[in-house]
């Protein structure tokens, strides 16, 4: 599904923010990505979202080596990936409904179909009342839920979420984590970047730990043990 081989990444001519990343995510797996602020979590997710190219190494997505892809092929790859951006990136002049409908519109879905699916999903994430509200009038948590709905509306094969539950109360956070789990059960590979130890504890999924630009893998138990140790 996803394979990184000695991947490095830099912004422009700057220093490498990611070094020698090696990882392999199996189809249908569920992963947390954690690490201190500035460690490069968002940068790693940008590689996964096909928004940046690795500056070295091989990145394979859906069985295809990314650097070999033609530019015309990238949109169809991106449509298989749902992304929840750390800063949401909603379109401020569009209603919540239209924001969530965007991926469907772009892929040319039928308008009636779009309407039913989008309203159902928005109700499910508790935004039934705010369907026609524009993002600037929504709270942080509400915006985040719109962003999540937009990421999952297309039933992506790969779901990437950058701090998806950071701006809401634990209860709503859990509800959305369960949504991710549901999708995961249906076959979606999920990668969630988070600082939230509680979340990692509760879901006991494999953890990827980024520090100073390099990646360490561990199970949830192992990671939590190490985390406790470093705190003491």
């Amino acid at each position: 599904m996803v394979r990184f081989e000695n991947v490095g990444m830099r912004y422009g001519m700057g220093p490498e923010v990611l070094r020698d990343i090696n990882m392999h995510l199996k189809p249908g797996s569920f992963h947390f990505l954690t690490g201190p602020t500035g460690a490069g979590k968002s940068s790693l997710l940008k590689l996964l979202a096909l928004s940046h190219r690795p500056s070295r190494g091989l990145l394979t997505l859906f069985g295809q080596e990314v650097s070999k892809l033609q530019r015309e092929d990238l949109p169809s790859f991106r449509r298989k990936i749902g992304v929840v951006f750390q800063e949401f990136r909603l379109l401020n002049h569009l209603s919540a409904l239209d924001n969530v409908a965007l991926p469907l519109r772009i892929s040319g879905a039928d308008e009636d179909q779009i309407h039913t699916n989008v309203t159902e999903l928005l109700r499910w994430v508790g935004l039934g009342e705010q369907m026609f509200a524009k993002p600037p009038t929504l709270s942080g948590g509400e915006k985040q839920r719109v962003a999540i709905a937009r990421a999952v509306i297309n039933r992506p094969q790969l779901l990437i979420a950058d701090e998806p539950t950071g701006s809401m109360d634990p209860e709503m956070g859990l509800r959305l984590m369960h949504l991710f789990q549901e999708l995961n059960k249906l076959g979606t590979t999920v990668v969630i970047a988070t600082h939230d130890i509680e979340l990692i504890r509760r879901f006991s999924s494999p953890v990827m730990f980024l520090q100073e630009g390099t990646l360490h893998h561990s199970g949830a138990e192992e990671y939590l043990k190490r985390h406790r140790r470093s705190k003491v």
Binding site: A49, L50, S51, E72, P75, S76, F77, R78, R79, V83, R89, L91, L102, P103, I106, S107, R150
Partner: peptide, 16 residues
């Protein structure tokens, strides 16, 4: 620019 980037990242073709 910001909107174009979002459209681009959710899979809009250049033509769109």
């Amino acid at each position: 620019q910001a909107i174009i980037e979002v459209l681009h990242l959710i899979g809009a073709r250049d033509n769109y």
